[in-house]
Each structure stands twice: as C-alpha cells, then as structure tokens.
Design a protein around this nucleic acid. Structure first.
Lengths: 147, 147
DNA sequence: CAAAATTAGTATATATATATACTGTCAACT
DNA sequence: AGTTGACAGTATATATATATACTAATTTTG
C-alpha cells in the first residue's frame, strides 16, 4: 500500500466505524425515548449541573441557538429545568429534574456496557493500542490548531 | 488503566477526533458553497453515475425521503440532474451536470490533501497501525451484526 | 459615569435527517 | 388477467444544526 494512502484509508475507515457504533448508540437511546443530543445533555448535566445554556453549548460544540430548542423540548418532557441566575439576569442555569436524573442513571450503565461489548471485539492490547494512537492524533490536532 | 476502561476511552477519543477532522472538512466544503451531504452526493456520483435516488440513499446510509430534498436543492443549484428511467418509470436516474463534474474535480484533490495533512501528524507506521486496527474493528462489527 | 462593545438567550430561515403515510408503478402469484 | 404485495419517490411532521438578526443585560472603556 502506498504510504500516503494509509492515512486517507484510515480516515475513511474511521468514518465508517464511527457511524456503525454511533448508530447502535442511537438505537439504544431510541429504546428510552431519547435522541443522541438529548442523551448528551442528560450526561453532561449529570456530571456538571447548574451551568448556563451557553456553557453547555460550548461543551457540546453546538451553537447557543441550537441549545434553546434542545432545552425547550427537554423541559417540555420534564427532564431538565431552567432556573434564573441571580448573578447574571441574562443567563439560565440548567438542572436535571428527578425524572431526568433517574433516566440518565438508568441508561448510563447500559450505554457503557454497550460500548464495552463492541470494543471488546478487539483484544485488550489492541484497545490500548487504538486508544494511544487516537489520543496522540487528538493531541497533535490540538497543537496544529493553536498554530 | 483498568483494561475495561481502555475500550470506552478509545470510543470517547474516536468521537472527538472524528468531530475535529470532520469540522475541517465542513469548513473546506463551505469555501466551495457545499454542505457535507452535498459533497458526498457529488463524490458518489463522480464514481458511479446513473444510479437511482434509492441506490444513492442506500450507499449514503440515509433514507430515500432525505434524498428527495437533497437532490431537489442540488438540482436547483445546477450540480445534478434527474433523468427518467425508461426501464422503470418509478425511478429517477441521477447524473452530474457539467457544473457538478467541474466542482467535484476541483474539490477532490484539495480534500485528499487536507486529510493527508492531518493524518501525516502521525508517522507512516502509526497510520498503518491505526488503519489496521480500524479495519479489524470494522470487520468484527460487521460479523457481529450478521449474528 | 455614560457610551460602546460584548454576552446570553431567542427568533427565524435554511439544510439535514428520520418516521410515517401516500401515490404511482412494477412484479408475483393464484 | 387481475389482485396482491413490494418498491421508488414525494409530502409532511418533528428533531437537530447553523447563520443571522434581534433584545436584554452586563462589561469595558473613554
């Protein structure tokens, strides 16, 4: 194989693998009445509650305009709530409701098991190898961006 | 590191790396007035013209309903055209216009260079290693699905 | 301190994507 | 041959996502 071609082929393969695994996550979330974006919101608020819509949008790498609609729909479902920020009256602080907290606590272990099952198709050594290569690429991409 | 954790961490890292690279592709396509989905259509028709909307939807892993709107917008831009299928009057066969063909021929080398630049952050050996791990995972995922 | 610039959130237009229901066409089977 | 079933494409409702423009509140700065 042409050396230059391996990198391109790796990207093509990564796209397909990413798509395959993500589809399985989408399917699991659908069983619980969630979209992927809604799962991401629940997961992030589970680990970091009381952040603003803008902060959540930054972490999820989406726009604040998208966040307005996402939170609207999830508030309607009763999974999250907006509370006024006393320090800054422009902001809304986001919290899980009891219903939202139960939901993420129920789903998270299933999700982790699902991913473990899929990644365990590779040997422990291969998983570690893959992790290290991806981490290195991630760090190099970050460095490249800073230039 | 816990052995079970490496697989999960690999997935989390893959999601971030995928997102980072894809965003750069989106940015390049935006310079040419294309969305990612539209680039995918041009690319696939460049390699395989005269297929139906359903066939293209199957290859792109989207629904045929989505394809109707995608092709509508691209036909409006003058990049692709629908032609009647004489053999099956239900079908529309898809072709690049001259404008669409020029566009993909102009963009494709830029896209390949872009991906090579990013993947060359890893050494040739690492690229090959990454490719092999991803290919193996892809094949194992396929096998798992068939069961 | 007052004007200017920035920031948080919302509203709107457009693009992508799914699920569902519908139309028209083709194929299969009795 | 005619009915039934499957298939290709479209229409529509809903969800996600961006870009843009807007409002209200806060910060910066002259």
């Amino acid at each position: 194989m042409d050396e230059q071609a391996a990198g391109f082929a790796a990207w093509m393969t990564m796209m397909r693998v990413h798509q395959q695994i993500q589809q399985r996550v989408i399917d699991l979330m659908a069983l619980h009445g969630l979209t992927l974006a809604q799962f991401d919101v629940l997961l992030r608020l589970h680990y970091e509650e009381g952040i603003t819509q803008q902060q959540l949008a930054d972490r999820m790498l989406v726009t604040k305009g998208n966040m307005t609609g996402l939170i609207d729909r999830m508030e309607r479902q009763g999974w999250v709530e907006r509370r006024a920020d006393e320090q800054d009256r422009r902001s809304h602080l986001l919290y899980l409701t009891e219903s939202g907290r139960s939901k993420i606590i129920e789903i998270l272990p299933q999700h982790k098991n699902q991913i473990w099952d899929l990644m365990n198709l590779l040997s422990p050594g291969q998983q570690k190898n893959l992790l290290e290569l991806l981490q290195q690429l991630e760090n190099l991409l970050k460095t490249k961006t800073e230039n």
